[in-house]
Design a binder for these strands. Sequence first.
DNA 1: TAGATTGTTAATCGATTAACAATC
DNA 2: TAGATTGTTAATCGATTAACAATC
Lengths: 209, 209
Amino acid sequence: MENQKKIPKPVIKRLGLYYRCLNRLSDEGIDFVASKDIAERLGIKSSQVRKDLSYFGEFGKRGVGYNTYELMTKLEKIIGVNKYWNVIVIGAGNIGTALVNYEGLRKEKFSIIGIFDADRSKVGKKIGKLTIKHISELEDFFKKNIVEIAIIAVPENAAQMMVEKLENLGIKGFINFAPIKLRTKLPVEDVDITLSFKSLTFKIDRELK
Amino acid sequence: MENQKKIPKPVIKRLGLYYRCLNRLSDEGIDFVASKDIAERLGIKSSQVRKDLSYFGEFGKRGVGYNTYELMTKLEKIIGVNKYWNVIVIGAGNIGTALVNYEGLRKEKFSIIGIFDADRSKVGKKIGKLTIKHISELEDFFKKNIVEIAIIAVPENAAQMMVEKLENLGIKGFINFAPIKLRTKLPVEDVDITLSFKSLTFKIDRELK
DNA sequence: TAGATTGTTAATCGATTAACAATC
DNA sequence: TAGATTGTTAATCGATTAACAATC
């Protein structure tokens, strides 16, 4: 229920953290939890937890806290991981291969159902249970499968072209590993581990925390 | 030169983006660049570029812009990637293995010089040019090598213990892949790809950009 | 009831941006 | 000089936090 107020970007990032935290609490057999407890585990303020949740509804009981399982289920729906998402990987290089092998994704409701590469010498090779397909097979693949998310793991110069092709085929969003800003009207999440390393060295040199 | 004013967190994140952008411009043979051009490539405002840079000095020429190579070199020093950093990986699972194989890190001045695991059945196996060592060999390894950064790629329950061990051995900072908040006085950068996926599905469901 | 904790408001804090004098 | 673009100030915008009435 409730307001269609604009959700601040930092809140979106924290939703996943809350969800993860609730999962842990649930595993630990904790049935009720106060915003203060969640905040402590995540190293933030309890008022921030309450404020963030308030964008989506009223999930707590005053004087008591939140029902762990109930809030977890609510967050699951809000984030959209109450169902499996079909994902394809574009680019069977180092990153693409690693992602297909990474079982963590599937656990979090993301199923990689295909991997594609432009290099014909890679086509036909197996990665886990998947066989690398050629880029030219994409169109056909979209006809036979529901594909929602594409992981862009191709070199920089090929990324934008692939994005346009996939947009035309009806993809819904991108996880982008190419070190470039993608031009698209669809949602994109950029991932660049080397940027994290650079933030770290900056902090180390300045003795920041 | 200049002020020891506090650097806003978002600025730290953008430094790497600026550096990357300057690298491209340099490759493209562009000798001078205006803040407007940098901003356009990154999808931000030119005043933000100028303001961000101003925390570290005056690098431009009015009416002209910035000398690409010069600014790149300055940023390199500011970020701290004007030298190589020695990195070890803790945990030879999926993520740890992928990182050792990922040549992108070395290109960005991060050399992985060791990988460690608690599982003795993995010890002795090769990943690229490295041989997996047992956790118990860490102390000795620190005596024989300069180790600055540790990548935590072990399961959640082992992460905090490893952090404390490494802190005692004199590590300077952590890249953390464990889905947990590490308690340490040293700088940490958390990396969690599944969080990016969750932000994406949230946006897809709400038709946000 | 007494104690605890929510949901929300208002105050504070921090980051972004427009605007412009300085100057190449 | 005329035009362009910086570096910086001040205004705006957005996010966090403290505080507290509501209520379990």
